[in-house]
Nucleic acid binder design. Structure first.
Lengths: 110, 110
DNA sequence: ATAATAGTTAACCATTTGGTTTAATATTGG
DNA sequence: CCAATATTAAACCAAATGGTTAACTATTAT
């Protein structure tokens, strides 16, 4: 059995599969933010947001820093790059560079 | 509540969150393949693979064409591009182009 | 000291997910 | 016609997911 397993990609792509979590990341792209602020736009309880944040944190997409009773959340882009890199392997399928596709296939055969 | 919802991104990222499905896509990048062929490398029953294929198909990542009793599956790259485009919004966070970040923030303020 | 604020934890629930096995449906070959 | 092949469908199961409310912890303010 071929092993394409990557716990990182599992966690990152799964985390991105939820609209609330993508919205949180979009919000964090504007700058770090506390939990309550992140929760505000969502029609959802605070514990629910807390859970989403843990999912993002586990995936390495968000870092939390405790400052007094406030927790400051910030975007951690590394895993997003991993995801982008994975997808980039397929870019040749949509960007019309069929020469690159040919190169790729050729290299595979060797 | 801000609406960042995208059913497409939900489906695509969720689909990519499973290693078996990523492996299937990687296999399809080498060319179209029938279901049994796709199942072969995996230590998993055929119905399980069939389900994974439906997930991929629902996400628009795989197309199935029935040819006799064989079903030919092929890679459908469109949704991958959607996913890549979404992630690309965050590229400025890891590629060191902080000028682009400044531009982006500025445009947001307007 | 007490109350308010920020956030998490715990317990619970319904639904989804990812797998199984067994049965069914087409299609092809002898 | 009958058997084999390719695949899906159905029924089932355990675990994970995404949400809730209520209770708890820690910190700040009065």
């Amino acid at each position: 059995m071929v092993n394409y397993y990557s716990a990182t990609l599992d966690a990152v792509f799964s985390a991105l599969g939820d609209p609330t979590r993508r919205a949180i990341l979009a919000r964090l792209a504007h700058g770090a933010s506390r939990v309550t602020e992140l929760a505000a736009p969502h029609d959802m309880s605070l514990p629910a947001i807390s859970k989403h944040l843990r999912v993002l944190e586990t995936a390495g997409l968000v870092r939390k820093e405790k400052d007094g009773r406030v927790i400051r959340c910030s975007l951690e882009p590394g895993p997003l790059k991993d995801a982008a890199d994975w997808i980039a392997h397929y870019q040749r399928f949509w960007d019309g560079r069929l020469d690159a596709l040919a190169d790729y296939i050729e290299r595979l055969e060797e």
